[in-house]
């Protein structure tokens, strides 16, 4: 049966309109904004300036510092959440006593608002907070982790890892459930120990899902705003200033919307390029032509 042209247009119009409204229009608007000097507090001097915002951005030391901090933030958060998440997934899969309770508890950090998580950890990491007390108690001596330029960024990234490790654990555990038991039994018969079983049998089979999890974790952590905002606001100085915080400050503290839009577009490009790189690496290693 051939679909009439009229029917096709009628059927597609709502979704095309929605697509234009929620995706194309904001993107075009932001792109237009990025080509303007657009200050909210000095409107008389607003005008088109071409790619000047991008030139300023590329020449700005603070922008590159924020980009580097975003990469470090993502790297630390992923480097902790992925292996720890996989380890917890293995624990879940062994169905020990209390596993169902563990599953339930694991969900808690994920359902909390990142802002709440940030605020709670800010209090706990304060120089008179619980973690400081704990470190003193075990004889290590505390420090104001969020007030030291050398530790602030890493500390916030670790809190991000704390919140999202359960996500990795739950997704990986679910993937492990789908593995055919016969393969594991064969591995055991071949004399594989637990580590070999994980490394040579389990991980290769759930690899596509792991890449997806890594991709989601990268995109989420690279865009993370709430926790750095509430915990350090990018400080001390700019020592924990990531790109979202940098963008926020230019947009909503300095009211330079044109420059902030340019930062947003560059972030979009950076996330897209890095995500594509991760997926292509995965495809290449799978032997799939890209």
């Amino acid at each position: 049966m051939r679909t009439s042209r009229r029917y096709t247009i009628t059927a597609l119009t709502p979704s095309v309109l929605l697509f234009l409204l929620v995706l194309v229009f904001p993107t075009v608007y932001v792109f237009n904004l990025a080509l303007r000097r657009h200050s909210l507090t000095d409107v008389v001097n607003n005008r088109y300036i071409g790619v000047q915002n991008f030139v300023d951005l590329a020449a700005g030391e603070r922008f590159w510092s924020a980009a580097w901090h975003s990469l470090v933030f993502s790297a630390v958060s992923m480097a902790v959440s992925l292996p720890v998440g996989i380890a917890i997934a293995l624990l879940i899969q062994r169905r020990l006593r209390g596993t169902s309770l563990l599953r339930a508890v694991l969900i808690v950090p994920m359902v909390l608002s990142p802002l709440v998580v940030g605020a709670v950890f800010r209090f706990m990491l304060d120089s008179r907070g619980f973690i400081d007390w704990l470190l003193h108690f075990v004889g290590l001596g505390g420090t104001a982790f969020l007030a030291q330029p050398s530790t602030a960024l890493i500390t916030v990234a670790l809190v991000d890892a704390w919140q999202w490790t359960p996500f990795v654990a739950i997704v990986v555990a679910a993937a492990m459930e789908t593995l055919p038991p016969s393969v594991m039994e064969a591995a055991k018969l071949d004399g594989a120990n637990a580590w070999q079983e994980l490394w040579h049998f389990v991980l290769p089979q759930i690899r596509p899902l792991l890449v997806l999890v890594a991709l989601i974790r990268f995109m989420d952590s690279f865009r993370e705003f709430d926790k750095p905002f509430i915990m350090t606001n990018g400080g001390p100085g700019t020592s924990s200033e990531t790109l979202p915080i940098y963008l926020y400050k230019f947009a909503f503290q300095y009211y330079d919307m044109g420059y902030a839009a340019a930062v947003g577009l560059v972030m979009l490009v950076l996330i897209s390029v890095t995500s594509t790189f991760i997926v292509r690496r995965f495809r290449a290693s799978e032997g799939v032509a890209s």
């Binding site: 304060d126 104001a144 001390p236």
Partner: peptide, 11 residues
């Protein structure tokens, strides 16, 4: 709220 007491102490 932008900076906790620890920030000022460290400075």
């Amino acid at each position: 709220t932008s900076h906790g007491l620890d920030h000022w102490v460290a400075l």
